[in-house]
Design a protein around this nucleic acid. Structure first.
Lengths: 230, 230
DNA sequence: CAATCTCCGTCTGTATGCAAGATACAGAAC
DNA sequence: GTTCTGTATCTTGCATACAGACGGAGATTG
């Protein structure tokens, strides 16, 4: 029948499963610091709070564990992840590696699209800095770094990043680094990265990125050490 | 009682959960090519075959999906993953990136231990080549590459590798590359890598590794293209 | 008063039951 | 003969029920 092609356009997106909904809700709760590091999560409490049965909650928690956002201790309970300074250091090192490689790919195969994405993210950060909350800025920051993986053309690279991006985002919001000049400094570094990328200066890009991420690493490490000491 | 501290040392590792057992069993079945790419897996059939209820089976399948070993299609079923040539290419590229970085870390911080591990793995490969099955050789090969991540000192790097190692291992056994000289060539490349590592020649190491992995990529790609064409 | 034992509440791990979507096939209508 | 439709039977998604493990409060004993 000739009208079939037209009909196909009506295909509806099937509703998200409860597992997905719960997962996203909890993910947001953890990342946006609605819960504290190490806080206990009872499957029972969550299921009644969210109005679903324990089954999807349980499955969602399992997924979050794979993303490193919660820690499941057999027979004891599930807890919001609690990073140590070492954790953060390794995490940042790893992140630097992923981003460097993603950027290299972007520069080689999707220069225009990546540049567009970056400038768009910068605009969002500007807006957030001007009028938004700190959370808005953090979200925009996250978005900036995600651009690389959207255009890098390697799904595995993107998956690997996604498997740690939750933790990175959570660190950003939980440890609202108290340094005053922090946002301004972050912004200027992001701008520098866009510029280096536009000019195809890969070495510069690596340097800025390294500095950007490793500085974050030290800042987070300091805050954590202070927290565990005090 | 003062003897409690001594008694604690006898604590036995608690029995694995059913989920873990099922997961490992299925993982092995997929990796060792007991099932074919794309084959359907029914929760019901699996649960009765394994003698457990559907719950742990379901959870295990969810985990395997996160490792990329199965694909879950809502309301339709679960299937053994079915890689395309593109998949394989991206996978190998990613793998090269991870291994390169891991090796760099090993060379910098755990030279001796890594070298020991590599030579041990080489010995296992020799043994497998002399008298073992092709599966034995594949397992030893997998072991060789795992050494890097054992000693690289970055858990995230190791996790990322583990999240794709299943697929890599499955490719190795499923696509038993028919080229005759393959094993010998692979062996010699591994030996070259050990040598370059021992001498600290990082650039050489990168080159060999790149060649080693990218050649595997092309070989797998060929087999897959031929399979999908024929 | 301190150390230890015991019991109980709470948690997770697993089994099972039920509902709803997807597919394949048989049969009816043209 | 071809196409459509209804149904039978698969599949998963989710809810609930039950049992075993862990941890803490209180009882018990030195």
């Amino acid at each position: 029948m000739t009208s079939m092609k037209a009909i196909r356009r009506f295909k509806v997106q099937q509703p998200k499963s409860l597992v997905t909904i719960v997962e996203e809700r909890l993910r947001k709760a953890i990342i946006d610091a609605e819960m504290r590091f190490g806080e206990a999560l009872s499957e029972d409490a969550l299921s009644s709070a969210l109005g679903v049965s324990r089954t999807p909650v349980r499955e969602a928690l399992a997924r979050l564990q794979l993303q490193g956002l919660v820690t499941i201790v057999p027979k004891k309970g599930t807890f919001v992840f609690a990073p140590t300074a070492e954790d953060v250091a390794e995490l940042c090192t790893f992140r630097f590696m992923l981003e460097t490689n993603a950027l290299r790919e972007c520069l080689a195969t999707a220069r225009e699209a990546t540049l567009d994405g970056m400038t768009g993210a910068i605009a969002a950060m500007d807006a957030a800095q001007a009028s938004g909350t700190r959370h808005d800025y953090a979200r925009a920051d996250t978005g900036f770094h995600e651009v690389f993986f959207l255009h890098c053309g390697n799904r595995y690279l993107g998956n690997a990043y996604r498997s740690v991006s939750g933790r990175v985002a959570a660190l950003r919001t939980h440890l609202s680094v108290p340094l005053e000049g922090e946002q301004a400094r972050s912004m200027s570094e992001h701008r520098l990265m866009v510029e280096a990328f536009a000019n195809g200066r890969l070495a510069d890009l690596d340097g800025i990125l390294r500095q950007h991420i490793l500085r974050a690493r030290d800042a987070y490490g300091d805050v954590l050490r202070r927290a565990s000491a005090g």
